[in-house]
């Protein structure tokens, strides 16, 4: 009787797990395995047969200058994303965590850009950066800083920075929200106790806020890492990786190879590499964060 009850309970659990698991297997696990298999083939995406080439696609990757440049751009994207939107998000969260008037409204305003489709963001920022009628050059001219005006989306290194800034605009609100949630979970008594012990604001921040925000920080860093390596929409909408690969990122290069140049096997190898890089970085940071 007891066994039967247990079985009935377990089957109930499986009823809830199986649909999600099935979706995961069909849409995530199977494509991943299929991509891995494709990466060992040369295939143009149209023929029924594929030519097995072993690790040749991976060897090609090592000698592919543009892949390496793309990877470097992703690393720059990650570094600047950690430096700008994440720091800004933390700063804003700290300001908002004080009993600021209109805190909820400000949080919504900061979060708004994150709700806009990235393609739309790309179009908006392309207009902002437009060399002739864009608001950025317009404002610079208006305040007498003409020497700073430039064709933002046509000149290296500005073009990559311009894209990262547009990306940061959509991301800082999300970071603010996460940090704010983290800050609200910190017991205010800890700050009171620190104040009694004579700790200043900086000391409170370093010794209470930072350690107690560790979980949120880990989440933000992992999220930023993944986001920085899989960034595509905004790049594609604004520059398509150009001019002359100066904003090429791994995903745009992958797309060009697999879907435009019909080198599906090579594109699959790039995506497996991307997966491996994200996994390694995430696991490395997780183990570091746990050790700390």
């Amino acid at each position: 009787m007891r066994r039967l009850k247990l079985l009935a309970r377990q089957s109930g659990i499986y009823c809830f797990i199986i649909p999600a698991l099935a979706l995961y297997v069909v849409f995530i696990f199977y494509p991943m395995i299929h991509t891995l298999l494709l990466s060992f083939h040369e295939w143009n995406g149209a023929t029924i047969t594929k030519k097995y080439v072993g690790f040749a696609n991976y060897v090609k990757l090592i000698y592919d200058d543009i892949f390496l440049i793309s990877l470097m751009h992703n690393v720059i994207w990650l570094m600047l994303s950690l430096a700008l939107p994440v720091s800004l998000g933390l700063l804003l969260a700290l300001l908002l965590s004080e009993k600021t008037k209109g805190r909820e409204l400000l949080t919504i305003i900061y979060y708004l850009p994150a709700m806009i489709s990235l393609v739309a963001v790309g179009i908006i920022w392309s207009l902002i950066y437009h060399p002739q009628c864009g608001i950025l050059n317009g404002v610079l001219r208006l305040i007498g800083l003409d020497f700073l005006t430039r064709p933002w989306l046509g000149q290296t290194p500005w073009v990559l920075l311009a894209l990262i800034a547009a990306g940061a605009w959509t991301y800082f609100g999300f970071c603010t929200l996460l940090f704010l949630a983290g800050l609200q979970n910190i017991d205010p008594q800890l700050y009171d106790a620190a104040k009694v012990d004579g700790a200043g604001r900086l000391q409170q921040f370093l010794h209470i806020t930072v350690p107690l925000l560790r979980n949120v920080t880990t989440l933000v860093v992992i999220w930023t890492t993944i986001g920085s390596f899989k960034v595509f929409d905004i790049v594609w909408a604004m520059t398509r990786g150009g001019p002359h690969h100066s904003t090429e990122v791994v995903t745009s290069w992958l797309y060009k190879q697999a879907f435009e140049a019909s080198r599906v096997g090579y594109g699959a190898a790039i995506s497996i590499c991307l997966l491996a890089i994200i996994l390694i970085l995430t696991l490395a940071y997780l183990s570091y964060a746990e050790r700390e």
């Binding site: 290296t156 002359h244 690969h245 019909s262």
Partner: peptide
């Protein structure tokens, strides 16, 4: 041409405009 060659031509011409190729 194939899309691969054509894409590369487009990109390289952008490189020449920029003085990088």
């Amino acid at each position: 041409s194939t899309a691969r060659w054509w894409n590369e031509l487009c990109s390289l011409m952008q490189g020449i405009y920029a003085g990088k190729e």
